[in-house]
Nucleic acid binder design. Structure first.
Lengths: 219, 219
DNA sequence: TAAATTATGTTGAAATTTCAACAAAACGGA
DNA sequence: TCCGTTTTGTTGAAATTTCAACATAATTTA
């Protein structure tokens, strides 16, 4: 567990808590970890939400699949990111999404009730934990709004450019790698893959971007 | 202010707090109210987020408009609903959305910092307030996911049917009124208005729904 | 009540997306 | 390195959406 302290320190849930505090709290919170191989379903749609997940290593995708089999990708999470926190807070009996391991990933699970209700040990910094969780929830709302901003655009071209512009801002750079392959990017933008590929080709011809696989450069 | 106690009691932010407690807290929180006429902009895109808003009467819409002038409606809020809570929690310097009064509406504003940081008076139930705010944030995340579920559908017909099915579930009834006119519904579903009207006509002919203005009945 | 305004429905043409099928390129394991 | 697999690119046809323009209905205002 101690190996992951560096990750936890960067995790917004533990913001402003000392190493010692984090370690003590993990006990109170009854945190446990698990490893999942690539493509393994960590949490599946329809199951009850009880635990908050923290990505300790690797990366995961939040997805949903409708009855026609169309997959929609809601987001990609990396080291230090949390998932399922909103559903766990609400004690939802049926998760509306699945969480899939993108690669071999280690995940920490924390029972949400242990965060919301301070323990008898009276951890002095439990309050900070609650405060942090609130910030995480607020950030998630903003993240989804961003996804709505992207997918509300009417054309594949605009969706892609809106997404890439946001990526560029995040990276403070015009060139960057995205965490999706073509099919995944299409499922995130909610468009057809072949149409997306065609659009990327056009943008390349128009001199608007360079691109090689998941590397993009805006010109 | 006292007239609105009935609304505040139903407001999730004050869940599980007694009337007296609510009244006491409003003082500590330095809550203030304001009235806005129909179509008035309560908060505008780009301005800093400082206050949480509570709809005391009337209703408001959360909207965003891109540089081409395309309006996107993120949601419709009624009596007792909160808005801007995520942005205020994050102390965002530039709100990504606007909030517009749908009709003459009275709004209560609370400085988010007063909720997050317990006051010197040591209100005994301040903790409950924080806990409630967390649930509100979690619920908002779920609300946005629902909007994404709707707009991720590829055709106008599917978007509309997904939306109406969710409405029917919420109302526990196959017939209900929606809070949107045609243009607003189109802006919420992120589709063209005339195309939406055409699709409604088709669904009517196919015997799948009845509809008169904002009243719908699924068959 | 009539007139003006706003909301909704209808239509056809143009643009775009999806779909299916296949080609080309990149990758991974033996 | 070779081969099989996966990913990406390309294409044309069919379906759908958008757009513009106008007709009709409902609501509001004078």
């Amino acid at each position: 567990m101690r190996n992951f302290l560096n990750v936890l320190k960067k995790c917004p849930l533990f913001f402003d808590l000392s190493d010692d505090n984090i370690i003590t709290m993990l006990g109170c919170l009854k945190a446990r970890t698990d490893i999942f191989d690539k493509n393994y379903t960590i949490l599946s749609e329809g199951s009850p939400a009880k635990y908050i997940g923290i990505v300790l290593s690797g990366s995961v995708q939040i997805t949903r699949t409708d009855y026609y089999g169309n997959r929609s990708i809601l987001g990609n999470l990396c080291e230090g990111d949390l998932f399922s926190e909103a559903f766990a807070c609400m004690q939802m009996t049926s998760m509306p999404v699945s969480v899939i391991a993108n690669e071999r990933s280690e995940i920490m699970f924390i029972d949400c009730n242990h965060i919301l209700h301070t323990c008898q040990n009276g951890c002095p910094h439990h309050q900070q934990l609650i405060y942090n969780l609130m910030k995480v929830l607020a950030l998630k709302t903003v993240m989804f709004q961003q996804k709505i901003e992207i997918t509300s655009k009417r054309s594949t071209r605009e969706k892609l450019l809106t997404y890439l512009t946001i990526c560029a801002k995040k990276n403070n750079k015009n060139s960057f790698k995205i965490p999706f392959n073509r099919q995944e990017l299409a499922d995130y933008l909610e468009v057809d893959r072949s149409g997306l590929s065609a659009e990327i080709s056009k943008l390349r011809k128009d001199g608007i971007l360079e691109c090689k696989r998941n590397y993009f450069k805006l010109l």
